Computed example of a mutant assay.
Amino acid sequence: MASSPSDEDKTAWGKVEKKFEHKNASEYYDPCQAFAERSIKCLRRNAGDRDMCSDYFQAYRDCKKEWLTQRKFAKANPSDPSSAKS
């Protein structure tokens, strides 16, 4: 079985932070896109039954929450080099 969603969402931001920080002004990059795609695939697989995909939705929410928390922390502490890795 694949690693748990909580393991994946903790590293999602770390893997894409550099790309996100150096993007063009008109580009939007979502480090949690993989979780969103998994949610959509689950809905398709289960004929739109949201109850069957609740774990996927929760993984996406957790990823977004972690990403936004890290972004806020990085903005509040721009000189703190450890903020990029937390």
Rank of each mutant, 00 (worst) to 15 (best):
Glu21Ser: 04
Ala25Phe: 12
Arg44Pro: 00
Glu66Val: 03
Ala59Leu: 02
Gly14Leu: 11
Asn77Asp: 06
Thr11Ile: 14
Lys15Gln: 14
Met1Glu: 06
Asp55Asn: 08
Gln70His: 07
Lys85Tyr: 03
Cys32Ile: 02
Lys72Gln: 15
Cys42Pro: 04
Asp62Ala: 05
Pro31Asn: 04
Pro31Trp: 01
Thr11His: 08
Lys10His: 04
Trp13Pro: 00
Ala74Arg: 15
Asp80Ala: 08
Leu68Val: 14
Cys42Thr: 03
Glu66Pro: 01
Gln33Lys: 05
Ala12Asn: 01
Arg45Ser: 03
Lys23Phe: 03
Lys10Met: 08
Lys23Gln: 12
Asp7Leu: 15
Ser39Trp: 00
Ser26Phe: 06
Ala2Met: 12
Asp80Gly: 04
Gln58Met: 09
Glu17Arg: 11
Leu43Arg: 01
Glu21Phe: 04
Ala76His: 04
Arg38Thr: 01
Arg50Ala: 09
Asp49Phe: 09
Arg61Lys: 08
Asn77Ala: 11
Asp80Arg: 14
Lys64Leu: 07
Asp7Gln: 15
Gly48Val: 03
Pro5Cys: 06
Arg71Trp: 07
Thr11Ala: 07
Asp7Ser: 08
Asp30Cys: 07
Ala76Pro: 01
Gln58Ser: 12
Glu37Cys: 02
Asp55His: 14
Ala76Val: 05
Trp13Phe: 14
Glu21His: 04
Ser82Lys: 13
Lys18Pro: 01
His22Ala: 13
Trp67Tyr: 15
Ser6Gln: 10
Leu68Ala: 11
Asp30Tyr: 01
Asp62Phe: 11
Asp49His: 10
